[in-house]
């Protein structure tokens, strides 16, 4: 069996009395799309924040390619090849699209201009930003020098997705990347997710949209009340069953019995 590119065991995260994660296991394999579903407050965002270095878990362990890691910043996770699109998007509104795409990994000009004067390769970064945006097929973003706050919610989301995709190392995590998107843009993001998977990247997709999840996911991790309620596949269960597990109407075991019995 192949080794997971990213795995976590017994992740715990509490916020004072509030339990965000109560011991969660998760495995992500190369070249797969793992969807994470769960009700509001189930701990999905907390889980991916721990995986991406935005939060330090109170307990549990994490491995990348089998090696134990612990991230104290998103920068460290990125260096390990984990890119994330946060639910809040994490874009700086007053900065332009290109600056946001390259935020915290700006490229300097070659030669003494870059090494001595630390001058940024602004035109080069703009060019590449344009290319990444075009690759994503987001035709509605015309001007790469436009500030992000002048964009619609969907366009902003596209910028955040483009940033993760552009630098995708091993793992791309997307926290509700299609929440503010129209039908066409959603289709584009789903296509992009498949493209990334076909390039061999591993994807974690958090979404409340069951049709999308069942369309694109290889496996589905169900999160419930800070715990993992089980892992299913689009083949093994129906969306209705997934929702039933998610809301606690049934457990994975009993739903499995139902599936087995109905077969």
């Amino acid at each position: 069996m192949t080794q997971p590119v990213l795995e976590a065991e017994g992740l715990i995260k509490t916020f004072g009395p509030v339990v965000g994660l109560a011991g969660v296991d998760i495995q992500l394999y190369p070249g797969e799309v793992l969807a994470v579903i769960g009700d509001n407050g189930a701990g999905k965002s907390t889980l991916i924040k721990c995986l991406s270095g935005a939060m330090v878990p109170d307990g549990g362990s994490m491995k990348v390619d089998g090696r134990v890691v612990s991230f104290s910043s998103t920068q460290e996770a990125r260096e390990a090849g984990i890119e994330t699109v946060y639910q809040t998007l994490a874009v700086a509104p007053a900065l332009d699209i290109a600056s946001n795409l390259f935020l915290a990994r700006e490229r300097r000009r070659p030669g003494p201009l870059g090494s001595v004067l630390r001058m940024l390769d602004t035109s080069g970064m703009k060019r590449d930003a344009k290319r990444h945006i075009d690759e994503l097929g987001i035709s509605t973003l015309q001007n790469i020098s436009q500030s992000v706050e002048t964009l619609s919610g969907g366009q902003r989301q596209a910028v955040a997705v483009a940033r993760a995709a552009a630098f995708g190392g091993k793992v791309v995590i997307l926290d509700e990347p299609t929440a503010a998107l129209g039908v066409r843009e959603t289709g584009q993001v789903l296509r992009l997710i498949r493209d990334l998977r076909d390039r061999g990247l591993a994807i974690i997709l958090i979404s409340h949209n069951m049709p999308n999840v069942f369309e694109v996911a290889d496996r589905i991790h169900i999160q419930r009340l800070g715990r993992s309620a089980g892992v299913i596949t689009p083949e093994s269960h129906t969306p209705a069953e997934a929702v039933a597990i998610m809301t606690g109407a049934v457990t994975l075991e009993t739903s499995g019995d139902v599936t087995a019995a109905s077969e």
């Binding site: 935005a54 998103t74 920068q75 946060y86 998007l89 994490a90 874009v91 700086a92 915290a104």
Partner: peptide, 20 residues
């Protein structure tokens, strides 16, 4: 990059932190 980070941090510190 220092200048860009100064602007970004002042603009939205939380987003800037998540961005690395």
């Amino acid at each position: 990059a220092w200048g860009k980070h100064l602007y970004a941090t002042g603009d939205d510190p939380e987003a800037s932190g998540l961005a690395g």
